Simulated scan of single mutants.
Amino acid sequence: MNSFTILKTSWGIAIFYEIKEHLNFTKDLIDLHEIGPQVFLNMNNKMIDDVSFKYLKAGIESILPDIKALPINFTVEKLEYNICDYQPEGMYYMFRKWFFENHNMEIPPINVYYDKELNKYIFPDLAGI
């Protein structure tokens, strides 16, 4: 299983996942979400809450210019995290990490810092999501 982690203090964000990419697929899959023209996400909505899904969807939308072959379906096969080591924004960067690694591309840096007073990680680039 792949992992995404951010650790800038004594606690962090940790997400474990398996994602597959399919170029030939049927559009009659259960839980298929159209993210963009000819770009789909297949996952069981019960895996994550609505806020986490919003960040996952935004992460996929952010890589649309980098997709070379259409139509394409990203299938989230496994997704695990401990609620104590989690923030929904992590879904955005988790997907980007997987996509860029999977396509042998450089992973863009993550703009993040830990706010001790709020006791959470702040992602300035995601403020508009």
Rank of each mutant, 00 (worst) to 15 (best):
L70W: 05
M91N: 05
V76S: 08
Y86E: 12
F74C: 11
V51Y: 13
G90N: 11
N42F: 01
I63S: 12
N44V: 01
T75M: 01
K57G: 03
E80N: 14
D50I: 08
N45D: 10
D31C: 04
N44S: 09
S62L: 00
F74R: 09
I67M: 12
L64D: 01
I63V: 15
K78T: 15
K54Q: 15
T26H: 10
Q87H: 03
M47Q: 11
I63A: 08
D31A: 05
D28K: 10
V76F: 00
N44A: 05
G36P: 00
D49I: 01
N45H: 12
L70Q: 09
E77H: 01
F74A: 09
K78N: 14
L64P: 06
E89W: 06
F53R: 14
D28C: 01
N45T: 05
D50S: 15
T26P: 02
P65H: 08
V76C: 07
P88H: 02
T26V: 02
I60G: 03
F74M: 06
L79P: 04
N42V: 07
E89N: 10
I72S: 06
G59Q: 03
K57R: 15
D50V: 10
L29F: 12
D28P: 01
F40M: 01
S62H: 06
L41M: 11
H33E: 13
I63M: 06
K78E: 14
N73T: 08
I63C: 11
I48P: 10
E61Q: 14
C84S: 14
I48H: 07
G90A: 09
N73V: 06
D49R: 08
D66M: 13
D31L: 01
G90F: 09
G90Y: 12
I35V: 15
E89S: 12
A58P: 01
V51A: 12
I35C: 06
N42I: 05
K54W: 04
L29A: 15
I60N: 02
H33Y: 14
I83Q: 15
A58M: 04
A58V: 00
K46H: 13
P65S: 09
K78Y: 09
L70F: 15
Y81W: 10
I30A: 13
L41C: 11
Q87K: 04
E61V: 00
G59D: 06
D50N: 14
I67P: 06
H33D: 13
L29K: 14
S52Q: 04
V39Y: 02
L29T: 12
